[in-house]
């Protein structure tokens, strides 16, 4: 199982393609069920909230339960703790280097 982190800090309003996201999620949950441990969404901009509400209507309950939208300070602390500071890159509050 893997943990997904989606950083939306640099996304723009024009880049939102809800249809592509729905297709992507549906593909992954149909062909790779149970491969996702958790999916964290960071820095979700306000204009993405309504898009996410629509996208989530098309996702399975089991998938949605794994998605965590990190917005508050408490959620951020839990996110860092669950990934582990050793693994999490510095820009997300950990101590690791981000190496492709």
């Amino acid at each position: 199982k893997l943990i997904g982190i989606l950083d939306l800090a640099n996304i723009g309003y024009r880049n939102i393609d809800a249809r592509a996201l729905i297709t992507g999620f549906q593909f992954l949950q149909a062909y790779y069920p149970e491969r996702l441990a958790k999916f964290y969404i960071l820095s979700m901009p306000w204009f993405f909230v309504s898009a996410w509400k629509m996208i989530s209507l098309f996702l399975e309950k089991a998938t949605l339960e794994k998605v965590v939208i990190v917005s508050s300070q408490d959620e951020r602390k839990t996110f860092i703790k669950e990934i582990g500071e050793e693994t999490l890159p510095e820009e997300y509050g950990g101590r690791a280097k981000l190496i492709a």
Partner: peptide, 28 residues
């Protein structure tokens, strides 16, 4: 998924790989 940068950090605290997707103007 045409994201700007995709990273795979291995392993996390409990041994699970971590996939990091940084979205930008090419997303999704």
């Amino acid at each position: 998924l045409k994201a700007k940068k995709i990273y795979l950090q291995v392993p996390s605290k409990n041994g699970q790989p971590v996939l990091i997707i940084q979205a930008n103007k090419h997303f999704p």
